[in-house]
Write a protein that binds this DNA or RNA. Structure first.
Lengths: 342, 342
DNA sequence: TTGTAAGCGTTATCAT
DNA sequence: ATGATAACGCTTACAA
């Protein structure tokens, strides 16, 4: 038994393969009786059209590529789900590639993804290599940077200001009366979100005329709970009179909280704690941890919207002879969730 | 400026496109000078070969499809990373599809993935619909069920026994002297891993002649921390004299722990807790939580191995005229991590 | 070592 | 509403 082709269905239905093709993609353009007969045969035979062949002929691959550093993250998961939901009505599939937080891997991943000619490519991290940028630009495929709004994005961007959000939450700590505030971040974060968040911390502290020396940023990204705990321990060893600690992410903040639990320190009385990202752990910890709310769902939905909009613009551009599509930037709001830890 | 094709590179190099094709895929079959000239042109021009066209011609798509329920899970992340590493040397890419824990979505996802003709398809959940099974079987594409070893897998399988692992950890609790042991699980888990884990709980309890009525399995899968906490609260309300609680997963166990923290209950003195899956939270919680160690990396590596082996078997099968490849089952070991919570 | 010719399985385009 | 034909951009198979 060989693999079925469209022509096999066509022969069985007594029509040409073009009619089968139409019955499958644009049912209205085929007579009802013919269509029903074809669909019945397709179903019975288990025929599955070959998208490789279809893609070659139509020059539409039918999928959008989502590149994430890791698939172990609720925000990427929600973003992916929302992106998928937003693109499904347009018949676009989402295929996910994982770079595993390795910059060299991203370059590779981008190149292998481009080979499959996605209809758009969504990036979730910044700090791309020059070659990555060149490949993306030359591919003529719409590129969307997400999460942060880069000053100079490769193509379009949907995101929020990590710096502004961090500034906001640190201002909250300051308004609570904490003065000796420490910061726990990640190492090697030049050109990444971590840097921007730390910048936000500095913005708030300097504006309030507070001391900014209590910083520890040596965890390997992405910082995890246990790293957060050990950073906290070293922070306290070095600056024992610290009153509050601002962490680059919720898992790190939870790590700091567990250190307090082991020391028998009351939170927030002895030590206030704040995180970033509204992960489940910050809601469930005892006490719950103050954090910055970010919405992967919103990001995914907006990104889907943008992709569909770009697609339409391109269609009408082809019709009108215009080829230039302006770079789009979508800025999302963030808000802080004040909880018992501060 | 139009998209570059292989022929453009060929013309620039003064060779035929076949030579370019060879220089790119089997460098040794092209004269050194020619090859260098071609590779230089490719690099300078930013030409990226079209895998859609290549796939159609060669009947090899060059990718393996990994279908996960969600990308918010460290185990799938590690499995994906290991799978990727294992397949990369063979020139196989891993593309991830997400079903979002919706059974209807899985059917859809399988079908759209099949359209792209992956060279193997890796499934991470069980309980497939009849149509899904039919499509997979008729596709003639190698299918690998992972995590659990189903009694009747669709194709091949790499996994461990959830039932046996759960039995082991419950036996540990029993050996510690706990008698009134409760169970917190997920609702609607017929045919899924949850059912098998609960079965393992029953196995151990019945073998020890202990009461098995303290079960609460009404959380919506996948159970999360807050659901674990509320299940625990209801368990305690109904059976206040419970001594230990076995949870279907670590996040649920952590939820139970936070309830104890809020009640001021000592763990394990007043309440012993055990989880499943060795998530980071169980290592970082205070006290750390006893759990079952599972290795996504190992699963991914073994799965990659199996895929390469099947591929070779197929190659030599084609040469020898044999077409039948036996179903493979790979069983991995699990172990329990005894920690302070029990 | 390189080239030529013929597809791969679908869809675009133009007829009818 | 349906069909014939020619791509789509590459690789296979064979020839030189």
């Amino acid at each position: 038994m060989n693999k079925l082709r469209m022509e096999d269905i066509a022969r069985a239905a007594g029509v040409s393969s073009m009619t089968v093709s139409r019955a499958l993609r644009a049912p209205d353009s085929v007579a009802l009786a013919t269509r029903l007969k074809i669909l019945k045969l397709v179903k019975e035979s288990g025929y599955v059209p070959d998208l490789i062949a279809g893609g070659l002929a139509s020059k539409r691959s039918g999928f959008v590529s989502l590149l994430v550093p890791s698939i172990n993250n609720v925000h990427y998961a929600e973003m992916a789900a929302a992106l998928k939901e937003g693109l499904a009505p347009a018949g676009l599939q989402v295929l996910i590639g994982m770079s595993n937080y390795q910059p060299s891997s991203e370059e590779n991943l981008v190149e292998t993804m481009l080979r499959r000619r996605p209809e758009a490519i969504v990036l979730t991290n910044d700090g791309h290599s020059a070659r990555t940028k060149k490949l993306l630009l030359e591919s003529r495929i719409p590129v969307i940077d997400t999460w942060e709004l880069p000053v100079k994005p490769i193509g379009h961007a949907v995101g929020f200001s990590n710096r502004q959000a961090m500034r906001q939450i640190v201002e909250h700590l300051i308004s609570r009366g904490y003065k000796r505030i420490g910061y726990i971040g990640e190492a090697n974060d030049s050109g990444t979100r971590g840097t921007l968040r730390r910048q936000g911390f500095l913005d708030a502290m300097l504006a309030a005329n507070l001391d900014t020396t209590r910083q520890l940023a040596d965890a390997i990204p992405p910082i995890n709970m246990l790293q957060g705990r050990s950073s906290f321990d070293r922070l306290i060893e070095r600056w024992p009179d610290t009153q509050a600690v601002m962490c680059v992410s919720d898992p790190a903040a939870f790590g700091a909280l567990t250190s307090c639990q082991m020391r028998g320190w009351k939170v927030p009385e002895r030590m206030a704690i704040a995180g970033f990202g509204s992960f489940e752990i910050s809601a469930c910890a005892v006490p719950p941890i103050t954090t910055v709310r970010v919405s992967g769902r919103e990001l995914g939905a907006k990104t889907a919207e943008l992709i569909l909009q770009l697609r339409e613009a391109k269609e009408s551009g082809i019709r009108s002879g215009t080829t230039n599509i302006r770079t789009q930037k979508v800025l999302l709001e963030t808000s802080i969730l004040v909880r018992a830890s501060s």
